[in-house]
Nucleic acid binder design. Structure first.
Length: 305
RNA sequence: GGGGGAAUACCAGAGUGGCCAAAUGGGGCAGACUGUAAAUCUGCUGACGUACGUCUUCGGUGGUUCGAAUCCAUCUUCCCCCA
């Protein structure tokens, strides 16, 4: 029988962690996170990592396993998650993935094409060029390297343009020629469960959760990470705003309001991303029993209490 | 009691006779995104319509004018100064 993977997705604050832990306990399964920021150590509060009690209930992976200074990418995630899952499948025959990083979930479920890894130095150079000379030179370069992708890229987006050039330069081939657009077949079965709720309710929950983070010590966590603010890991809602506050650019009150606002916007982007995935089975936040029932059916296992 | 200033779309705020459904910013909404993705980027944002467009707006009312957010009168509200 092929291993089975339950994937829990949804915007921040929708209750993915709680549902994952609930299912983990019911089915006796381990949980693998799919979150680009929870992989880092020292960011427990701001990234809403599972609480110690939750971590104690179920075996968790890919949480707080990287140093703040590390680079971590969707490609790394794909490799690492697959590797971990192989071990978990051998022991349990199934596992749960929960997280809000849509690209990471895609990487895990459908795979990414074999593209060259990031080249920090090259990137730095290209970014500098974009900053000082504007987009024109890089766009010209990309047009020469890969006319096909050039026609399709978002030319206003430096990330997209620079990555494309990076891939072309490092691989010696046009980026577009390396993009298969097809998904890799995986040797496990997947069930995707999404959590939704009315917008107003979600936003209220997000605001409330930020307040809870503040009570839990988000500010001092951010203060402890201030020195590392330049790292990618800290280009993260909840920290950036506090860094600006520590720098005296904004008041604490403004920082808190911005954290809430940026969290809401982040949630919106997540919803936009997940809405494209037609394989997700959506459940309202209160329908945990229904979601668990679907998972049980998928696992072909009785619901043990 | 006297004098002065201001009222513009969700908010802030330009505009001071036609090029104004009204700059710009914020907010909101919608979206894009295959190795930075909690990142990065884009569009829309008076109403109706896919669209050419049509209709209703710039505190209220009434005027002047071919034409008013813009000028005049008056009313209302707010702010400041003198008493």
């Amino acid at each position: 029988m092929r291993p089975k993977l339950i994937i829990i997705a949804g915007p921040t604050g929708s209750g993915k962690t709680a549902l994952a832990v609930l299912m983990a306990r019911r089915f006796g399964l381990p949980v693998v996170s799919a979150d680009s920021r929870q992989v880092f150590r020292g960011m427990a509060i701001g990234t809403a990592q599972p609480a110690p009690e939750e971590l104690a209930v179920a075996e968790h992976h890919l949480i707080a396993c990287r140093d703040i200074a590390d680079d971590y990418t969707a490609g790394d995630y794909e490799r690492e998650a697959l590797d971990i899952l192989a071990g978990l499948f051998a022991r349990h025959g199934a596992a749960i993935v929960a997280g809000g990083s849509g690209l990471y979930i895609n990487a895990l479920c459908e795979g990414m094409d074999a593209l060259p890894d990031a080249d920090p130095e090259l990137r730095l150079r290209l970014e500098e060029k974009w900053r000082s000379e504007g987009p024109a030179p890089l766009l010209t370069q990309l047009q020469a390297l890969d006319p096909e992708y050039y026609a399709a890229v978002d030319r206003a987006n430096p990330r997209r343009v620079i990555r494309a050039i990076e891939v072309c330069l490092k691989s010696g081939k046009p980026f577009s020629s390396l993009r298969s657009g097809s998904s890799r077949s995986r040797d496990f079965e997947m069930l995707k469960i999404g959590i939704t709720m009315p917008r107003a309710e979600l936003y209220a929950r997000i605001d409330g959760r930020v307040d809870a983070m503040l009570r839990d010590g988000l500010e001092s966590e951010a203060r402890a990470l201030y020195l590392y603010r330049g790292f990618n890991s800290l280009q993260t809602v909840g920290y950036r705003e506090f860094f600006d506050c520590f720098d005296g650019k904004i008041s604490r009150e403004t920082a808190v309001a911005l954290i809430k606002q940026n969290s809401r916007r982040y949630a919106k982007r997540q919803m936009t991303w997940f809405s494209k995935d037609k394989t997700i089975n959506w459940f309202a936040a209160g329908e945990t029993d229904e979601a668990i029932a679907m998972a049980a059916k998928f696992l072909a296992a009785p619901i043990a209490e």
